[in-house]
Write a protein that binds this DNA or RNA. Structure first.
Lengths: 159, 159
DNA sequence: TCTAATCTTGACATAAAAGTAAGGATTTGA
DNA sequence: TCAAATCCTTACTTTTATGTCAAGATTAGA
């Protein structure tokens, strides 16, 4: 249950765009430099993000990337889905061991855990927009914990 | 943000042991067969789980594996940590791109997200024991959602 | 129209994760 | 004491994810 490299760097690239002013753009070279990755790698990530509809690109001199909509309207849950090519649907068809289908046919105590976990993560991510990640570390951390603090508290009470 | 193969199969093997009666054990061959994986693979997973202190193994004829403590006392958070070799600590040292250290030195809006997400997942997992995963799919699903339903509700209220 | 700057795309190389194999170590029971 | 059954450990192979490269396509501006 780790974040993948593609998720991490893709999100970072997107945040670079989110921090731009109106009408500003960044080229692949800019992004690569700012995130300390190769231009080729940045290119691939931006291509994914473009396909996912988060950024728009213009080619040619004076070209570059910018967000395709305001950072307030881009939720982490969507971004992660695109970057990690996330499909919980096919899970039970892919983890079959050496067999043709999962051995836990019909009734399975693990499936709800896998799916439930996925829900929890998606849920947490769907509360957060790119815009909320722009401040300083301290501010972002506070925001993040304010959002999820509620969950924490209620569980403790519930116990 | 996916569950790894090692996490999935490791957890399943552990559940096989959790479903045993008192004084029963399973050999690698048994476990492999029940989960539809190779014996070699089961061996590796059980070795990890043994190192992690979740199971005890006895060698020789009549040997096999059993849980090292009651399934009520084994939390998913611990199991996952062992199976995925989960270390959020070193995160900022490993995702450095081509550089020696992460470009987001000092102040970083992404770190709290990565760490926060990790917290959320760990938190969800630390509410669940192996014992709670033993029933039928329906029951397990209900249990899972009863635990996390609270979180969901409070967030909606909070909004 | 031409050139330089830029994104796009698919093929390729490299690194990491997953899975396999084989020989060694330990235990039971004859 | 010996043999069979079992776990343990390390090295290797295969598969998957990551990252790179090079040629192509598009645009702005001279």
């Amino acid at each position: 249950m780790k974040i993948s490299a593609q998720e991490e760097y893709g999100l970072r690239c997107l945040l670079q765009l989110a921090s731009l002013g109106e009408d500003e753009t960044l080229t692949l070279g800019d992004i690569a430099k700012k995130e300390g990755i190769s231009q080729a790698n940045a290119g691939k990530l931006m291509w994914l993000l473009n396909k996912g509809g988060f950024v728009k690109a213009t080619r040619g001199t004076k070209g570059g990337y910018s967000l395709s909509r305001p950072s307030k309207e881009i939720y982490l849950s969507e971004v992660i889905k695109v970057l990690d090519d996330d499909e919980i649907e096919g899970h039970c068809e892919s983890y079959t061991g050496v067999l043709d289908s999962c051995v836990h046919k019909g009734d399975c105590g693990i499936r709800p855990v896998i799916i439930g976990l996925h829900e929890i993560v998606q849920n947490a991510l769907s509360d957060i927009t790119l815009a909320q990640l722009l401040g300083t570390e301290k501010k972002v951390d506070e925001r993040f914990h304010r959002i999820h603090g509620l969950k924490q508290v209620s569980v403790n009470i519930g116990k």
